[in-house]
Structures are given as structure tokens and as C-alpha cells.
Design a protein around this nucleic acid. Sequence first.
DNA 1: TTGAAGTCAATATT
DNA 2: AATATTGACTTCAA
Length: 354
Amino acid sequence: MELTMENIGNLHGVSHSHQTGDLMNSPHARQSATHRNLVSSHGRSAMVSSMASILDGAGEYRTDHSLSGPLHPAMTMSCDSSMSLSSTYTTLTPLQHHLPPISNVSEKFHHHPHPHAHHHPAHQRLAAGNVSGSFTLMRDDRGLASMSNLYGHYSKDLSGMGQPLSPLSNGLGSLHNSQQTLSAYGPSAHLGNDKMISTGGFESHAAMLGRGEEHLARGLGGHGAGIMSSLNGINHHHHHHSHTHSQANGSVLSERDRQAAGAGGQGGGSGQVEEINTKEVAQRITAELKRYSIPQAIFAQRILCRSQGTLSDLLRNPKPWSKLKSGRETFRRMWKWLQEPEFQRMSALRLAGE
DNA sequence: TTGAAGTCAATATT
DNA sequence: AATATTGACTTCAA
């Protein structure tokens, strides 16, 4: 999917070279010539295999993409290059399907066509049928719960919240989500920037699209303050960076970009073409990782398909969107992850790693 | 050819 | 154990 987005994004910009570039980048292609290549390859194979299982007929799919065009969803697929070919039908799949308009929530799960029913696909299934709000929450909860099994640490967070399970806990669970929302607050203040994809304006869209979670959390706003403070705290603490970024704030982006957005704009936009407030995303990712005790290495590898060192650097010294080239893809992934409901995030972490 | 952007893998720190 | 830093290396665009 992301490819799709990428392509679209790049369209107005440069030509094909770009998209291919991205594709090539992530995988192993990079340092091919070197000896390292060998080394990297091993990790690669693992990924590939897992991917294959996820996408079941991956191989076929590629060749035959025309058929499955619409179905392969924006799901949590990991890195891999399989889609390079799929770029064909790019324009059509707006990534929208990712956020089904309420009624079709169940569809979402289709994408998860994994052949092996091995684990506990159960929770997903259950979750499916429902529509917005409250149900979404339920799903989340389940997701988390299941996750906790896999990752010991996750549970800790839950316990910390004080309410393991119970209907109410659902509410709370999503609540802590709100931290994201709150962050929206922060940046806007700093940057005074409006058009970033960051939580602000975008969020409403998301909500409209049927993504109950976020707006819901937002509604609860009350504690936002508390969380907020924590974020800010982080900011302040880290004053020690020796880096000389001209852009301490990070994101001063452009006014003119929005035209681009508008142009491409179709309302649906789950926002792929938009610019991302890298600083904010970095903060939020950092916060989430901490919250769930997800090590950078895991996140980097499974969600971003990057190394721990890379992630660490991106998190600490995010470059402004306007200065990014292919590196945008990485931030898009982070952003996308942030946009997903808990259970999906977790499953993504899980899937890529098995 | 050169330089910037991105990464990785190894290594240093915490 | 997790995160931070760094040197090497590729790719892309002047």
C-alpha cells in the first residue's frame, strides 16, 4: 500500500525513478555490492518468508496483480518488495479501503488473508462485525490482551492503568490513546503550523472515515493535559542535543504544499500525500514505544524495516519533512502506525516478527 | 565527480 | 538489554 501512496505522492514530483528508488531502498538492494550484502540477506530471507505466509499467494499475487488489485489492502504488511510490481494500479487504491467507512469494518479483516490460522486470529474475527465507537474499543482491548501474552511488557502497561479488563477498561484503554491526540495540541502551539498532517486537521477526517478511535479519544480530552505535560517534559529534557539543526522546531513547512494537497485532494484522503510533522511523529513514536515497552529494534525492524540505529537517529533528530527525500517513507510508516488502532499496531508487531 | 540523503552494521553508552 | 553514535556504503541529483 504504502507503495501506492508513494507513487501517488511522487507523481507530481519526480518521475518513476523515485518510486523505484524507494522500493529499492528499503530492501537489501542498497549495499548490494559489498560483503555486507550477504549478511543482510539472511535477515531478509526471514522476512520474506513471513511475508509470504501473510500474503499467502504472494508469488502469484505479484504476477497476477491485476486480479487482486483492489483487495490487497493497506494492511499491515511489512517491508518487502513484493509490491513493486503492484504499482501498476496505484492510482486507484487510495489507501482508503484501509479505513472502511463504518459499515464495512469487517472487510478490513479480509485483508488479513493469512492462510495459517495458527495463532489467535480469533480476536480479530470477533471484533469485526461492529461499527464505530464503542466496538472499536472492544477490539482494541482484545488486541491488547492478546498482545500481552506475546509480549510480557505490554501487560504491564495495562496493569498500570489499573483496569485489566472489564467493559470499562475498554474505555480507558483507548483513552490512553488520547495521548496522541493531545500531542496535537503541543505542536500546533509550537509551530503554529496548520497544514501538517499531524493530528490536527487530519484527525477529523479520520474520524469521519469511520475511525472511531481517535475522535473518541479526543472527546475524552480531559486528561489530555496530564499526558501532554509528559510529552512536553520530554521535549524540554532533551535540550542537550548537540545538533545544530537550523530547525529546532522542526516543521515549518510550507504553505504552498497545501495547494498540492488540495489539488490531489480528494476528500477521502487518508492523507498519504500530505506532509508529516516529523518532529511530532518522532515524539509520538517514542512515547508509544515507551508506553508499551517496545524496543526500538523491534519496531524498527518490523514496522519500518530499518535498523535500530536508524530509528534511533530518526527519533532523536528528525529532519523536517521538507528536507526529506526518500526518508519520507520511513516517517510515513511511523505515521501510519500511529494511525492504526491498537490491536492493529500490535498485530503488526507480532506478524512481522514471528 | 561530488555531495547530500538514507541506511546498516558495528560499536559505544547507558 | 536497549539506545546512541558512528563509519562505510549506496543511490540520486547536481
